[in-house]
């Protein structure tokens, strides 16, 4: 069964956020299934990506740490969470 996760990126808008995040994901062998990006309240960058983590060999812990570190270097909050947490709360 496919294991999917949601990557959330929130912070001040700047050049190259999507490029940096997707480059990192591709390094991990993580495929992006869907992506949405918007600017909220004038200047807050919000990107959500649905990704397939079935085939990555990197442990979840390391993926999370490296994404978080990338976020810190770009002054963004980047997190990754299994998709089920979001689905469970809104569907019976």
């Amino acid at each position: 069964m496919m294991k999917r996760a949601i990557v959330t990126v929130v912070g001040d808008d700047k050049v190259g956020i999507i490029a940096a995040v997707s480059a990192k994901l591709s390094q991990f062998g993580i495929n992006i299934l869907d992506i949405t990006q918007t600017i909220m309240k004038g200047d807050v960058f919000v990107m959500l990506a649905l990704v397939d983590i079935t085939h990555t060999e990197k442990p979840f812990h390391d993926i999370k740490e490296e994404l978080s570190a990338l976020g810190e270097s770009m002054r963004l909050s980047i997190r990754i969470q299994r998709e089920e947490i979001f689905n469970s709360m809104y569907k019976v």
Binding site: I35, T36, V46, A49, F86, Y90
Partner: peptide, 12 residues
């Protein structure tokens, strides 16, 4: 859409 932005941001 596969992603429901409102639900995800609300959960977070």
């Amino acid at each position: 859409a596969l992603i429901n932005q409102h639900e995800i941001l609300e959960t977070i």
